[in-house]
Design a protein around this nucleic acid. Structure first.
Lengths: 117, 117
DNA sequence: TGAACATATAAGTATATGCTGATATGATTC
DNA sequence: GAATCATATCAGCATATACTTATATGTTCA
């Protein structure tokens, strides 16, 4: 069973793979696969500075892997389904174990932002 | 149609993705998908030093993505099908355009090593 | 055995990367 | 408008990375 797939320029694919080749960004992307998250949640989850998180998200956004939407004072990030790399990204994320328990931890601590503006 | 896939520890997946996130190594892996190649062929194809090629191959070998087999004076590299990352690697390579014309170039120049020892 | 070829390793360098702390920008709420 | 919270950006630093040149190791063949 051969499934045909949309090829991506090798340079572009390389850029995406390099981005995913960082453990923080890879976990972020896996989380975003099933959940929209805001910056402050990532800060809690990964235990690195807000600045560092912001810089990771900027890189992901710059190549179009994620997009942002402001909701009140928060900015929520989500996977950009319109990216021409989206299919490849999803395929890769299939191999990554769920990171959702990290969000559930947050929930327990009452730090999950669930914003319904 | 949901195809189940063998998950990989996120740390390990990150290492593999980082390795594939270099344009030279990514092209190497795509070439190796369909062909076994030796170091000197890669040197011609990529136009970087033999040392650099050797170092890339070492990294790929160190994490088990490729394996080597000596044939006379040459050492041929091939994808390591026994790697637990093999499935993920193949899935990723599906998105990469064939690099075989680079080998065909070599062939034209008479630089392709076809060793039948 | 020695010359030629193929590959690996060592050492050094320039650049890229991921992080921190400080500061700027923007939204909310009093 | 001031205080507070969320996010982005800037500057600086330590480490990682990809490359080069030089050298070592291993193979072939005269």
């Amino acid at each position: 069973m051969e499934v045909k797939v949309t090829e991506i320029e090798i340079e572009k694919a390389g850029i995406v793979l390099k981005l995913l080749g960082d453990k923080t960004r890879l976990a972020m992307m896996k989380l975003l696969e099933k959940n929209d998250c805001c910056v402050c949640e990532f800060v809690e989850i990964f235990g690195i500075s807000q600045s560092a998180i912001s810089q990771h998200l900027r890189k992901l956004r710059d190549v179009g892997l994620v997009k942002e939407k402001r909701k009140g004072q928060w900015i929520f990030y989500s996977l950009n389904k319109d990216s021409d790399m989206f299919e490849m990204v999803l395929r890769i994320l299939e191999f990554i174990p769920s990171q959702d328990e990290r969000l559930e931890e947050l929930e327990k601590q009452g730090l999950r932002i669930s914003c319904e503006i």
